[in-house]
Amino acid sequence: MVSEQTARAWRDFISARLLQQHQDPNNGMSAHDYQKAVDEAEAEHQGFLEAFHRGDHAAAENEWWGLKNIANEWRAHPEFPEPISDGTVPCPVPSPDTGHPCVKPVHRGWTPSEGHGGGHFWKAPAVTTLEEAGVHYDAGSLLAGKPTPYHLPENCAPGCRKWRDR
Rank of each mutant, 00 (worst) to 15 (best):
N27P: 01
H22T: 02
P125V: 01
R161Q: 03
A16Y: 00
T129S: 14
T111M: 14
P78Y: 05
F121Y: 14
G99M: 06
Q5R: 13
L49Q: 11
P96T: 09
D12A: 14
E40M: 03
A144M: 06
L152K: 00
V2T: 14
W122Q: 03
W10V: 11
S113Y: 05
I84F: 11
Q23S: 09
G140T: 05
E61Y: 11
Y150F: 13
G134R: 01
P149K: 03
S30F: 08
E79M: 07
H77Q: 07
S30L: 10
L19M: 03
F80Y: 15
P125N: 01
T6F: 11
W65H: 13
V103C: 07
G87H: 10
T148R: 01
T6I: 14
P92E: 10
P125C: 01
K146E: 12
D56M: 04
G140D: 08
E73I: 09
P105T: 13
V2W: 03
Y150L: 02
G159Q: 03
W65L: 15
V38T: 06
E42Y: 00
E42V: 08
Q20A: 11
E63S: 15
W163Q: 00
P101E: 11
R161M: 00
T148Q: 04
C156N: 08
A9V: 12
Q21E: 15
H53F: 08
H22S: 12
G28S: 04
Y34M: 10
K123W: 06
E132K: 12
L49N: 04
F13H: 09
E63P: 07
T98I: 11
A59W: 08
I70K: 04
G115S: 12
H53E: 14
P149M: 01
E4N: 11
G28R: 04
Q5M: 02
R17Q: 14
G28Q: 08
A31Y: 02
N26P: 01
D24H: 06
E82R: 13
T148A: 15
V2L: 08
P83V: 06
E4L: 08
P96H: 12
T148P: 12
A51F: 03
P94I: 01
P149Q: 03
